[in-house]
Each structure stands twice: as C-alpha cells, then as structure tokens.
Design a protein around this nucleic acid. Structure first.
Lengths: 140, 140
DNA sequence: ATTACTGTATTAAGCGCTTAATACAATAAT
DNA sequence: ATTATTGTATTAAGCGCTTAATACAGTAAT
C-alpha cells in the first residue's frame, strides 16, 4: 500500500480516495475483510480518528459494509464496484480534459499528446503483459 | 474569468493555478498589465490578502513582474511562458496516468479511453475551428 | 468469566487558511 | 499640492482539519 499523503488537501479525503481505488481496482477483493481502523491508521501514519472519518464517508457510498464488532468488509456487489470504477475514470478524464483545454489544447491535440507520451516509455514496469490486456486485470 | 473555487484546497493555491493558466494560455498576453490586487480579489470574491498571497508565489515563479506602484505585468519572456505551459501539461498528464493505472487501466486502454471519449461529443463549442489547429491559439 | 479486539464517541489542544480592518510608502493623475 | 491608486504589512478573530488521550459497548477467543 502506498499511503502517499500531501498537506494540500484534507487527509481524510485522500484516505477516502486511496481506499476507493484499492476497492474498485480489485486490490481489496469483494467480500474481503479490511484491517481495523487502528491498524490502517498505523499503516498510513495518521490518527485513528482521521481514518475513521474516511471510512464513514466510504461506507456512505456503499463500497464497504460494517459489522459492529467484527470489522469492515468490501461489498460483494461487483456490478456496483465496476460502475464506480468507470465513474471515477470518467471523472478523472473530465478533469484532465478541462485543464488541458484551459491550457489551450484542442481535443485532437490532447489525444495526440496522450498517445505519444503514454505509449512512449510507459511506467517502465509490466512491459510484457501490456499490449493486449483490455481489462487491466482489475475487478470482477 | 471563471474563478471557480472549491473549499477542498487552500484558495490561494487555486488562485495561483488560475492565474498561471491565464498567462500560459495567452489569455493574459505577455507584457500586459494585470488588474490590481484589490480588484482581482473583488472579482474572485476573496480577501485581498489571499489574492496577494497568490501573487507572491506567482511572482516567485517568474511569470509576472511587479512594479512597486504601477502594478503587475505579465512577463515578456515568451519562451519561458511556453515552457511553463508544456510543463503544466506534462504534469497534468502524469497525474492522470497515475490515477488511471491505479484504477487498473493499462497504457493501451488509457489511450483508447481518451481517444474514444475525447473526440466523441467534445465540449460542444468550437466545433468549427477544431480539427487542424495544432497550437490551440495559445502563447507566442 | 476474562481477555483482546472490534467500531464509535468525546474533549481539548494546536495549526494553517481566511477574513476583516487597518495602516504606510511610493507613484500617477488632477 | 492634493487626491487616488498601487503594492505591502500587521493584528486579531474565526473556522476546519488533525492529533492526542481517553472511554464505552459489543463480540470472539481463551
């Protein structure tokens, strides 16, 4: 787990996003049990109260289910997880497009920019499995 | 001018980004005079101190020049402006790619995702001038 | 039954951001 | 010379986020 936190935004918001991503990417499988609030807070280096707050919002979105004393579990509604993944991806794209257009880039330019730079030297890793994986190995 | 501010991040940071974009996109031409701190603060609906703080950081980056009592002016170093534009665009792309990969998307998928959705219904506007403009009408 | 581990709630303190209300020096405009 | 406008600095107050230090209720394990 990464837990890269910056001081520019509320920590509980960032924790929420990280937890979301770990769920919709399949890193936290449907139905699996999550670590306790205290343990995750330790991992992330934050106060348990802060992690608790992140969970409160995460649960409100239906991605996790809480059992009073047993702990928290990832939802088993794989369809919802998948939809959430698409929603987040779409939102990220919209944000990106908005910024690029504000910078004066046209749609055509943006596509070329992304194509050129994204396929160039990639992230170095998984240069083998890449190329024909249409699902990225995520979710159900 | 937009001045869309959210409460999730420091306002002066957001003001800084907006000012940056207006400069590197050519909306604030090189050498042009900017409105006063007080006036811009009014436009944005923030306290003059907050706008002042944004300017302090903006000047530190060299995008503007301050003349004690005459006001602030956009730099005339068009090369720097252009480089800054590319730097911001690259940073935005990197952020986007990172999020998408965390969501489980592969590079190939991302390119297809962007190509499909970015060229689909666009932003509705400038459907006429789009298509062959390789510079977006920005900077020098 | 006792122990350990869940989620949850409360209180107080500290810190950064923001605002409000001024004030001052330097220059441009009249 | 006077007035208006510029950037800039200062002080105090309020607010949200974060942390620390607890505490409690419910359940699983022993």
């Amino acid at each position: 787990m990464s837990w890269k936190l910056d001081s520019d935004r509320p920590i509980y918001t960032q924790l929420l996003e990280i937890l979301q991503i770990n769920i919709v990417s399949g890193h936290y499988p449907p139905g699996s049990k999550l670590k306790s609030v205290r343990e995750l807070a330790m991992d992330a280096g934050v106060n348990p109260n802060t992690m608790q707050r992140a969970f409160a919002e995460l649960e409100q979105q239906g991605l996790i289910r809480t059992e009073r004393t047993a702990g928290r579990f990832v939802t088993e509604d794989t369809e919802m997880v998948g939809k959430t993944r698409e929603t987040i991806a779409g939102a990220q794209l919209d944000l990106f497009l908005e910024k690029m257009e504000q910078l004066g880039f046209g749609r055509q330019e943006i596509v070329e920019f992304v194509s050129t730079r994204a396929l160039a030297q990639a992230g170095r890793r998984n240069s083998a499995s890449a190329g024909s994986d249409t699902n990225g190995g995520a979710q159900a």
